[in-house]
Amino acid sequence: MTVILEAEGVSKIYGKGENSILAVDDVSLSVRRNEMLLIMGPSGSGKTTLLSIMGCILHPTSGEVRIEGKAVTGLHEDALPDIRKQYFGFVFQAFNLFPSLRAVENVELVLRLKKTDKTGIRAEALELLKKVGLGKRSHFYPADMSGGEKQRVAFARALAGDPPIIMADEPTANLDSRTGQDVLKLLRDMSEESHKGIVIVSHDPKAEALAHRVVFLEDGRIRS
């Protein structure tokens, strides 16, 4: 399997001097296509910080992040939005959908952001919603949907523009057990069928059984 995303010797220190906190400590990690990688660990272990660094949202204090072998760590802040647009889809614990937009429009929004040619965007958004099993709920507003449905919309949005990497932060945290299981299966299917590299940060023990690979983080370091 091809490595698509790598973190090498990545550290992150918040604050300065005596009050500084070492959130991520010399972590090296790679993500491959067709793989669902699960990062587990207790609260405060640095999981979300690591996810943010690997997702090019946060600069590491030291170390390097590479996408398809190319280093992105040293790039200027202005270059990062384009990198995120091209390579990443994100799924958040609190869904983060626009309440004023229908399900299809939430997906469409990202397509509008990513594509210069706006033709066929609506059809593409509908197709993505069908893919996550929400074809018939595409015109509902988030407020009228269940937690599981909202998370599926978030998945469809993450898939918009066909990014090779999906980063999911606690995707089952706000869902009931059964819906959480469905969502994790969906993510695994995505990795296998769409040849994507998927990184999940989760406390959910069910995720462990479905992930291709599991990494435990403790005090900012990978526990071997």
Partner: peptide, 12 residues
């Protein structure tokens, strides 16, 4: 939060 999401998704 939505604007932050947009930024994370690549909006300038």
């Amino acid at each position: 939060r939505e604007y932050g999401t947009l930024k994370a998704l690549g909006a300038r």
